[in-house]
Write a protein that binds this DNA or RNA. Structure first.
Lengths: 251, 251
DNA sequence: AATAGCATTCCATTTAATGCAAGTCAATCC
DNA sequence: GGATTGACTTGCATTAAATGGAATGCTATT
């Protein structure tokens, strides 16, 4: 049994089921590395026997959370994950709270504005209003990025506790702990992104002090320089983030 | 044991694991109904005992696919679903194939253009370029909708086989089988949506004849009437969908 | 203080998950 | 064309874990 494997001691946290843990571990492995992966590789990386990995993946495939390519027989994440994710996001009240401010920020600044969530060491920009005169594709550039490579991600990781720190550190370039600790109270952060973009983010903070989401604004340095960002973007972003935070407090 | 429950005969499909099936069933139940649900209700709806439902949900919660509200103790879908979904979408080649055509259609028509996927009886608009002069929030109106209430959904369900039909019929108002059968070869479909919007969709068809995605265009009838849609939108949309389909064939 | 409702844990039993071994299949090599 | 290899799938016996009844814990309400 794999229960005495990676987690040390028998099994995982008390009151949980090893089979579910194994199944989710395979989902996580599929989300890392190439899109399509061989059974033998997944079994090896998960420290499960071949038949066990096979049955777990078959079960997930029947449920739609995994897909098996009929030609190559390799496994990949499945499309039903999209439906579950969207059903989750459709009911996330913080995103409804953020939405009108995204419109307002986009109108007043003309730059790209986004709502960001932190999950498993990644930042996902789940809402986006493109700047400029043409609406751009919101999936490019990356809608999901390693958290610590983004301003929004650093702010949310800094406020997210130990687990968030560990997951973020394992996903891409880690940041010095002192630098992250310094961000735990920062109301906003500006980063420059290659080749010539800036990103400013501010967390939305709940009454309990947690940060469920961040608002970010991004633009080209060629178009608007740092002074403009500091004088125009930062104050507007802070007002919006504070207003959303107050909205969370009121109910 | 619940193995002899809803699935008839013992357990589910051969070579699959009941525990994984039960866990995914709870995820599906959480994606239906209210965002936050009581343990007792979930146990009843899933025909599992209270302790079993409890352990399954605890396992999913530890894994991040479910969350338990510390105050109300109710369960909801969890944020790690967003990361898994985005990692899936980030590698979906059909979306990369569609993306340039979305830009082109948006530029030439000035209307909202979208890329749609079908999953579990729902249509999810995973890419969107907003029409009009302001970029709008791409999450509103609904980014996920019952499949048969949308043009894109009807086209993809019609081409998706029996399972797609059944799942769609269970999710919102069913459509006459004859009407759906008639759409199996339709190159495009126009629907009017309350209160005054139109939506035109065309499927992207793979060499094997499957339809992994659809391109949709949506606008206001006040702004552009049916004649304009038929004369300007439909031909452009068909050309784009055919070009993407040819791109799938070429590799 | 008593009650109700809901969640969580203990424990014995039963069932299913597990992994070894064997089987299957397709691609490659000689 | 046959043998070999690599990868996936299935049969079966064993073992561990999943299961559910009963009990416990906790909070809100009366």
């Amino acid at each position: 049994m794999s229960g005495e494997g990676r987690e040390g001691g028998r099994g995982g946290p008390p009151g949980t089921l090893g089979t579910v843990r194994n199944a989710v571990m395979l989902l996580d492995l599929l989300s890392q590395g190439p899109a399509h992966q061989q059974l033998t590789d997944l079994a090896e990386r998960s420290d499960l026997s071949l038949p066990t990995a096979h049955r777990l993946l078959r079960s997930l495939a029947v449920a739609g959370l995994v897909e098996q390519d009929p030609v190559s027989q390799r496994y990949s994440l499945g499309q039903d994950l999209v439906r579950l994710s969207e059903r989750y996001l459709a009911r996330l009240s913080v995103l409804r709270g953020i939405a009108p401010y995204l419109v307002e920020l986009r109108r007043s600044l003309g730059e790209t504005v986004l709502a960001a969530l932190l999950t498993g060491g990644w930042i996902v920009y789940v809402d986006r209003l493109e700047g400029g005169q043409d609406g751009g594709i919101y999936r490019e550039p990356g809608r999901i990025e390693p958290a610590l490579e983004t301003a929004a991600g650093r702010l949310l990781v800094a406020r997210g506790g130990k687990r968030a720190w560990v997951e973020a550190a394992q996903n891409g370039s880690p940041l010095a702990a002192a630098e992250l600790a310094g961000l735990a109270e920062a109301p906003h952060l500006t980063l420059t992104r290659p080749p010539d973009r800036w990103e400013v983010a501010a967390p939305v903070v709940s009454p309990a002090g947690a940060a469920p989401a961040a608002i970010a604004i991004s633009g080209s340095r060629e178009r608007n320089d740092e002074d403009w960002v500091r004088e125009r973007v930062v104050p507007s972003l802070l007002r919006a983030a504070e207003a959303v935070s107050r909205g969370l407090a009121d109910g």
